[in-house]
């Protein structure tokens, strides 16, 4: 059984969906943040991939592209001790409060 990301030749009868996904601003910023962290030597493409590839099958298949990147980025930032998941939780709570 290949790993979750190793999709070449994986049985799939779905038609290819040709519609383009209009990028949301938050996705554009995740894309950019990934580039910024790369330029600062805080992550490289192989690390991002390794983190994405460690997602379990259900998560891997259900998340949209930049959602996977976000999950992977959290793993890498926490792993490197740049921030903790608790700090992110707390900041999310503050942001939610601000949206009310």
């Amino acid at each position: 059984m290949p790993k979750v990301h190793d999709r070449g030749g994986w049985p799939n009868d779905d038609p290819i969906d040709h519609s383009e996904h209009e990028m949301e601003e938050w996705e554009r910023q995740v894309d950019a943040l990934n580039g910024v962290l790369g330029d600062k030597g805080l992550k490289n493409t192989d690390q991002l991939r390794r983190a994405i590839e460690s997602l379990d099958l259900a998560t891997y298949e259900s998340l949209a592209y930049y959602e996977k990147w976000t999950a992977a980025m959290e793993m890498l930032l926490v792993e490197q001790g740049i921030m903790t998941s608790e700090e992110i939780d707390a900041k999310v709570a503050v942001l939610k409060e601000g949206q009310k």
């Binding site: 930049y66 976000t70 959290e74 921030m83 900041k91 939610k96």
Partner: peptide, 19 residues
């Protein structure tokens, strides 16, 4: 869920002076 987590990580990176 993920857009909020992304925004939180971004805010923390800026607060911590990473970028």
């Amino acid at each position: 869920y993920y857009s909020l987590r992304a925004a939180a990580m971004q805010a923390l990176l800026i607060e911590k002076g990473v970028c």
